[in-house]
């Protein structure tokens, strides 16, 4: 008859778990860009020229399918609000790299709704970063 050996219980070392976790937190703190964008349903326009945005944007402007305007995730009334909002954000900037304003708009919207907003961003001194999808 075989005699069963009693295996010694091996303790899992958990002493360094806290350290690992805090290192992960520091990683996320350094790398994160907190989401100011509301999740909205829109169809993005397509182009073969779009590339991954390499610059950090100073502000985010969006127009959804219903034509509602958003500035940094908050609904605003019109292009004038966008212009003053962008002006305020860009007031303390010193370099061109800090002037980029992300613009997201539904592909089907007519000119009356998107062009005044693009002009407002330009008037405020922003460099337009128009969001789209890569055409394959």
């Amino acid at each position: 008859m075989k005699r069963r050996k009693k295996r010694p219980s091996v303790p899992v070392p958990t002493a360094s778990m806290g350290d690992i976790a805090f290192l992960l937190i520091i990683f996320f703190l350094v790398c994160s860009d907190t989401s100011k964008e509301r999740s909205m349903s829109l169809d993005l326009p397509q182009s073969g020229y779009v590339e991954k945005t390499k610059v950090s944007v100073a502000a985010r402007v969006s127009i959804d399918k219903e034509g509602i305007l958003y500035f940094d995730g908050q609904p605003v009334e019109g292009p004038k609000d966008i212009e003053w909002g962008v002006r305020a954000v860009l007031a303390n900037t010193v370099a061109d790299d800090q002037r980029h304003v992300q613009f997201t708009c539904d592909a089907a919207l007519p000119k009356d709704q998107f062009e005044p907003v693009i002009k407002a961003i330009a008037e405020a001194g922003g460099i337009l970063e128009a969001v789209g999808e890569k055409r394959e």
Binding site: F28, S47, V50, V131, E133
Partner: peptide
């Protein structure tokens, strides 16, 4: 620490958007 990690995972946007850059002159 893990609770904080979960918070950052939820609040962080890791998706890189694609865009075109256009410096439009003012009026």
């Amino acid at each position: 620490a893990f609770l904080l990690i979960i918070y950052f995972l939820v609040a962080t946007s890791l998706v890189k958007v694609k865009s075109i850059t256009a410096d439009l002159p003012s009026g």
